[in-house]
């Protein structure tokens, strides 16, 4: 059995339990359900709200370098800390936060494999509703690493050149345009369908029933052999708003070790609203 290309980006729940409270290790919970952290979290963790803290609150964008520095300073994180991210829904938004940490150059950031649901369902793991005591820091981030992110102009160019892997990680019904967004979602687009040439590989393809990532061998078989992602090509992953694609981005870049993988966080809510952009259904 082969290893992940970068096994250091994952820790398991037992590792987290053994390292709770150790200096230099900071836990950050990021959930889709923003109420979950307050209901109960791993002792010592801080909670980030993806809606109000990880996105610019005026224009549609990720938070700026200054806002990222402010957020991490208030969370008591130092650039030399090992940051462990975890969250609900198989680490969707934890993966999004992971991507953001990588964008702003945090050296040692990892995901707790299986996320909060795995921890919750293990009888030897505890949760608390006690607020975490934080000593603020003066966090300094790097300029954003734009090799990890793609924006619309590049997506439109790539779409015509056909030299990239485009991986659509949404549900099959979103891919075919049967629905524009999953039921009840407020972020939507003007049109349904997918970017021409994209392969449909739903994010959950990479996950085991317990929420952990599948093994390197299984992932290689699914993505490279069955779905035909070409490891020689550059790759772009997208979904609806960029969080599920962060999950797949972690898989392709760090678990399979593909050379150049970008997350398109504009995703379908941007692409599916552009006048004249080519769409396949």
């Amino acid at each position: 059995m082969t290893e992940y290309a970068h096994p250091e980006v994952l820790v398991d729940t037992d590792w987290v339990k053994q390292n709770l409270g150790k200096p230099g290790i900071k836990l950050v919970e990021v959930d889709v359900d923003t109420k979950a952290y307050d209901a109960g979290h791993i002792a010592g963790s801080v909670g980030f709200n993806w809606q109000s803290q990880l996105q610019d609150q005026v224009r549609r964008d990720i938070i700026s370098k200054q806002e990222f520095e402010k957020l991490l300073s208030a969370a008591g994180v130092s650039p030399s800390d090992t940051v462990i991210l975890y969250g609900d829904n198989n680490n969707w938004f934890a993966s999004y936060a992971f991507w953001l940490f990588k964008m702003y150059g945090h050296q040692d950031v990892r995901l707790m494999n299986g996320g909060r649901v795995k921890w919750l369902n293990e009888s030897d793991k505890e949760l608390t509703a006690e607020p975490t005591k934080i000593t603020p820091t003066q966090y300094r981030a790097s300029e954003p690493d734009l090799s990890l992110r793609t924006l619309l102009p590049e997506v439109l160019k790539v779409q015509t050149e056909k030299r990239h892997n485009l991986v659509d990680v949404r549900s099959p019904d979103e891919f075919t345009g049967k629905v524009i967004a999953p039921p009840g979602m407020t972020e939507t687009a003007q049109r349904g369908g997918h970017i021409p040439g994209a392969k449909s590989i739903p994010w959950s393809t990479a996950a085991n029933p317990d929420g952990t990532f599948k093994s390197a061998d299984e992932l290689r078989k699914i993505y490279l052999e069955e779905k035909g992602v070409d490891p020689q090509k550059d790759t772009i992953a997208y979904c609806r708003i960029g969080e599920r694609s962060s999950h797949t981005w972690v898989v392709l870049k760090y678990l399979l070790g593909l050379p150049n993988v970008k997350n398109y966080d504009g995703s379908w809510t941007e692409y599916g609203s552009i006048v004249g952009a080519p769409i396949e259904k």
Binding site: V32, D33, A39, G40, R116, N121, E126, S204, A207, P209
Partner: peptide, 29 residues
């Protein structure tokens, strides 16, 4: 009442958001 959104592209085996949130309360508090 606490209302949660459950139907967000669910994955097999993941469990319901509402079940997990209730379990969280029972475990943390």
């Amino acid at each position: 009442l606490e209302i949660v959104s459950d139907e967000l592209c669910p994955a097999p085996g993941l469990g319901d958001g509402s079940i997990n949130l209730a379990k969280t309360y029972a475990k943390a508090q």
